[in-house]
């Protein structure tokens, strides 16, 4: 039995992670680890960066093909896709799907939360995009938190 099957919380060991160079370009981190019948992420990527053999297979991101555009984030019904981009000065941009009110505005300060909803840091909102009824919120955080921040509280 995997720990996340009990807790609902993934650890980094459960994920396939990109290298630093790929992170500098910005890539999608897909936190979808079970064989569920689902594949809209594959169709959503304009760069053919997500592949899947069969609808019940796991989505695999080709970190070299992925350009970090974030198109796949809002179609994923599991809200399981995030985009992480390492930028200068020890900072990173993290794009997160968001379906709550109030929706933050650019330059707002919000609380960044980890996979268990625990407070990580106060971060600044850099971009807010609405796709259908899912918002994609991009925040600026410290690079060492980039693989932990997975939610925001406004």
């Amino acid at each position: 039995m995997k720990e996340y099957e009990k807790t609902g919380v993934l650890s980094l060991k459960d994920l396939r992670l990109p290298n630093e160079k790929q992170l500098e370009k910005g890539v999608a981190i897909i936190e979808c680890v079970q064989h569920i019948p689902c594949n809209p992420c594959v169709d959503a990527c304009p760069f053919d960066a997500i592949s899947m053999k069969d609808i019940n297979d796991l989505p695999v991101v080709d970190f070299d093909k992925c350009v970090g555009c974030g198109q796949c984030i809002s179609v994923c019904p599991g809200l399981a896709i995030f985009v992480v981009k390492h930028i200068m000065d020890g900072k990173a941009l993290i794009s997160i799907p968001y379906e709550f009110l109030p929706v933050p505005s650019v330059n707002d300060k919000v609380e960044a939360l980890d996979r268990e909803g625990r407070f990580v840091d106060t971060v600044v909102v850099k971009k807010v995009v609405k796709k259908g009824k899912t918002w994609v919120v991009t925040v600026l955080a410290n690079v060492e938190d980039a693989m932990n921040i997975r939610n925001i509280r406004v």
């Binding site: 039995m1 099957e5 079970q34 599991g78 980890d114 909803g117």
Partner: peptide, 23 residues
């Protein structure tokens, strides 16, 4: 049950909002 029966992605959405799941 000792494990979460639903999809992990649904559980993860709840957990990152701070809702605990007690199996």
């Amino acid at each position: 049950a000792p494990v979460i029966g639903g999809y992990h992605v649904h559980a993860a959405k709840l957990r990152r909002c701070g809702v605990p799941i007690y199996t």
